[in-house]
Nucleic acid binder design. Sequence first.
DNA 1: CTAGATGCAAACGATTTGCATTACT
DNA 2: AGTAATGCAAATCGTTTGCATCTAG
Lengths: 157, 157
Amino acid sequence: MRVAAHTDQTVHEILQSMVKKGWRITEQRRTLATLFAHAEGYLSPRDVYDHMTKKYPGMSFDTVYRNLRLLSEMGVLEQFYLNDGLKFKARCQSHHHHHLICLTCEKTYTFEFCPMPSVPELPASFDVVSHRFEIFGYCSDCKQSRKQEKEADKEDE
Amino acid sequence: MRVAAHTDQTVHEILQSMVKKGWRITEQRRTLATLFAHAEGYLSPRDVYDHMTKKYPGMSFDTVYRNLRLLSEMGVLEQFYLNDGLKFKARCQSHHHHHLICLTCEKTYTFEFCPMPSVPELPASFDVVSHRFEIFGYCSDCKQSRKQEKEADKEDE
DNA sequence: CTAGATGCAAACGATTTGCATTACT
DNA sequence: AGTAATGCAAATCGTTTGCATCTAG
């Protein structure tokens, strides 16, 4: 199956969504948009804060949270509860698909197969609204590092 | 497709898991086991606390959390982040399957179809560890109440 | 200019921890 | 009896809120 690196929303698309909603484009929001447009996986509020404060040392956590929440409500970002808390990434706007998610680096890889068409008939009494299908594992990069760790462990014995 | 009401672990099975791990069976843990064995859907720590304090008015929140965590680590309970926080339910031990989840009452309905066998070949470079597939919607009970609410809304106009 | 965005500090809710007491085994 | 489980209170963490100040439009 064709599995693509995550296709991002462009910075421009994200900023456009903000403008459409009548929100102001501040320096920080521009940087935030750039961050998410280029991110390959899920980011925690902490990740975002750390990244932003490098450029804007005065930036506060509540501004990060405020913008994450606003962008989520707007549909620009999607949330996902991963291992150790809520994470965010730019929602794929293009088309419906699912993800491979690396348990180590939390990068996502798009794949096109959707199981819903092959699901046998569900009870008519249940109104289907949405579904989720994710495959978890280790991407080639992280698999590599895990392998090396194991070998290092053996040497210790 | 055959969709069954959730098949629970029995109280006995849950207690056995505790004993196997060398944990003591207290009055409260017995009640906790009974609660989860009979629960039809996900329970929040708050739900559990409310249920437990009816029987044991002195029971504290931290005991609820401690036991939820222990039971989760033991594999008796599974966690799920649903809308408004972390929820718990007895893990289905019997066999692999997936769930319909009602967005209102959070009850779960088991179905037997698993999409993994039909997934086209994934890149060999990705080590698959697990997957999740859930279908969200409204069960017949909650659909009914939603319908009634809508009608009530119309009358207000 | 002026509504919306930010920084600060404080509030808040959910969860965890330390310690003395209680109760399974 | 001895050790694990509990209750209590306080600490901690992540997230939200109120308000004065600042800034994009």
